[in-house]
Design a protein around this nucleic acid. Structure first.
Lengths: 190, 190
DNA sequence: TCTAGAATAGAATGATCATTCTCCATCAGT
DNA sequence: ACTGATGGAGAATGATCATTCTATTCTAGA
């Protein structure tokens, strides 16, 4: 299986899949060695500890996930791009191996706030917020930073609810909220 | 420490605190025995497996959390009660040992969909949704079930974002979104 | 073909895991 | 005081953990 990739790629791919499916602590190095086909020696030469490997795998997932989001929202103006996020989420939630946001799961599992794993999760949310912020700015919203924060909450909320309840329709509900935010960016009354 | 409580209460209390702080898999039975002051024999007599103990501890947390929410939103009419949720969340997020939603964390950590732990997490979200649904119904919204689902997404989204980023202000952003949902329950245009 | 270096499979290590067992102290009923 | 059961502390068990080591195979260069 996948012998045509470099050992490092095979390693990160397998690690990413295993920890997403079973969690970080429940995934042993043995399982990673077996799934990746990379020897223990090579593994520890590339990444000296399990934490370093997990960090690298999550960082790779950050890249892939952001590219998936950006590529899937590449048509139309900024508002259309923001709108396109929620149907994408719906498809993701309905995919058979969906298990929530890997970064929320990782941060929730790791207690130590100084862990590199927590730092990667924070960085992922920063990157996502930055992307949303750029689009909201292009929409001309005066309070675009606040709108971006609100969209982040909608995305992560829908993801968490879909993971726990199994209902992909959470993406639709979040999309309907987003629709309101995008229609009238500043509260009209009050 | 807390010798005046029953062994079962001490056990569940310590278990709840430990798994919330460090995760399920990273919490050993040894740590639970030491923290609770309950002997191994009594522990395994009350709960025959770790999973049973964790399930009971999470179920207790479900009760406590829901009571915390309901008691904190007991003043005024239904709309005021819904509004009161978000300031409560803000305080919770800012508390020193805040570590996200224990049920999202648990579901994210446990891979097996048939696990009892996942069932408790689902039940908690059902309970929370039911409470929101009751309040939304009392508000007279025609689409009160949808509004309740949307509020659930806001609550869980703010909780997840606050956990990963450490910013308690996520509760304020979610509260501002909720304000809009409560002001104009049905989309006026489209 | 011969050899040095690198990568492999997998055993060894020592810690920790959940769970069970052993031994001892406590205590109620007679 | 004696007995029988109960619960406690903590050792034993056997599995699994992350990490290191060993012994073997492969490969590149002369």
């Amino acid at each position: 299986m996948h012998e045509d990739m470099s050992p490092e790629t095979r390693l990160l791919r397998s690690t990413e899949a295993l920890i997403y499916a079973h969690g970080i602590n429940a995934t042993g190095m043995d399982a990673i060695v077996k799934a990746s086909g990379v020897s223990r020696k090579s593994l520890y030469r590339l990444y000296p500890t399990k934490e370093a490997l997990i960090t690298a795998a999550l960082s790779r997932r950050d890249d892939r996930w952001m590219r998936w989001l950006i590529d899937g929202t590449s048509e139309g103006g900024a508002i259309q791009r923001l709108r396109a996020i929620f149907p994408m989420l719906r498809e993701w939630f309905a995919s058979p191996d969906f298990h929530g946001c890997a970064f929320i799961n990782a941060a929730g599992e790791i207690g130590d706030p100084g862990s590199d794993i927590r730092a990667v999760s924070q960085q992922h949310k920063r990157r996502l917020l930055e992307y949303l912020n750029g689009l909201c700015g292009a929409c001309g919203f005066s309070d675009h930073e606040e709108v971006a924060r609100q969209l982040l909450i909608l995305i992560d909320g829908a993801t968490a609810v879909a993971m726990v309840t199994g209902q992909a329709g959470a993406a639709d509900s979040a999309g309907r909220i987003a629709e309101r935010l995008l229609q009238t960016p500043s509260p009209s009354d009050e």
